[in-house]
Design a protein around this nucleic acid. Structure first.
Lengths: 141, 141
DNA sequence: ACTAAAAAGACATTTTAAGTCTTTTTAGGG
DNA sequence: CCCTAAAAAGACTTAAAATGTCTTTTTAGT
């Protein structure tokens, strides 16, 4: 359970790649798609969603393409994931008070609230900058 | 994202109800289903899964039904959820080393591992006993 | 043998995921 | 002003998963 969809996976790959490029350098969607091995038409849809909420900036026409909408250290993984997967909702009853008839008596409810907070917290503390940076020499396994 | 399915929701409701009943008291599936408002045939499937892994014990024939397989304080929410939803896997690349070609270089990987651990930890620390107990007088909202 | 229950397995329907294809809009260059 | 390069938008398709249902079989008590 709790699995990221392909769309979410592709979204992360695509925007992390963009973050790894020199800022201000406009990237072609087709180049990004090829680099991260994602169907270009599908990635196009994803980047359209990014564009609408300002996570990326798009330029049309000749010489067009995409750049990040903000500095890579000011975009979190949480934003990216929620942009394409929707809000992190472990259970319907978490969405809002009154969603389920059990919400005042249900002991499970606070557990899901806890899960939601923890997950959001983790993802909110990871920036695209961190994800895009070259890994330092790691100890060989 | 990360949403529990109906099946998971029903599974929790059903087994928490069972945990709220006097231990040793055999419950009819039809009664449980009615009490927690779940389609009986669907709940049957769920309880079959529980039965296979010993979360509940089933008795066939006249006077048959279900009881918990262990004391309610020794069954965790994690077990219940994973019984019907499968393991908690935020991303494919978490399943095992080598799942994705990027696993040695991908900076996202450890984030998902973290998410997985945190969620499992939360669910593992909630027992059916806790979930089944009558709520104490709470401050009125 | 009859009846009450769960187990098992095949089937049906709906929803979501995962993508594709076509047409439209926008911008730059000759 | 026309041509071309690119993204935007929207309709469409296919495959997989979720959400059940229905029928038959097994098991156990009376």
């Amino acid at each position: 359970m709790m699995e990221l969809t392909r769309k979410g996976e592709y979204a992360i790959r695509g925007i992390v790649y963009l973050a790894s490029r020199p800022p201000e350098q406009v990237c072609l969607l087709s180049d990004i798609a090829a680099a991260v091995d994602v169907p270009p038409t599908f990635l196009a849809k994803i980047f359209q969603q990014f564009s609408k909420i300002g996570l990326v900036k798009s330029y049309r026409g000749t010489g067009g393409g995409f750049i990040l909408g903000r500095a890579a250290d000011r975009i979190t993984l949480l934003e990216v994931v929620e942009a394409v997967e929707g809000p992190i909702i472990p259970n319907r009853c978490v969405i809002s008070k009154g969603e389920c008839a059990r919400d005042t008596t249900c002991n499970v409810h606070p557990v899901w609230v806890d899960v939601q907070h923890q997950v959001r917290d983790i993802l909110n503390n990871v920036t695209l900058q961190k994800l895009a940076e070259k890994q330092p020499c790691e100890p060989i396994l």
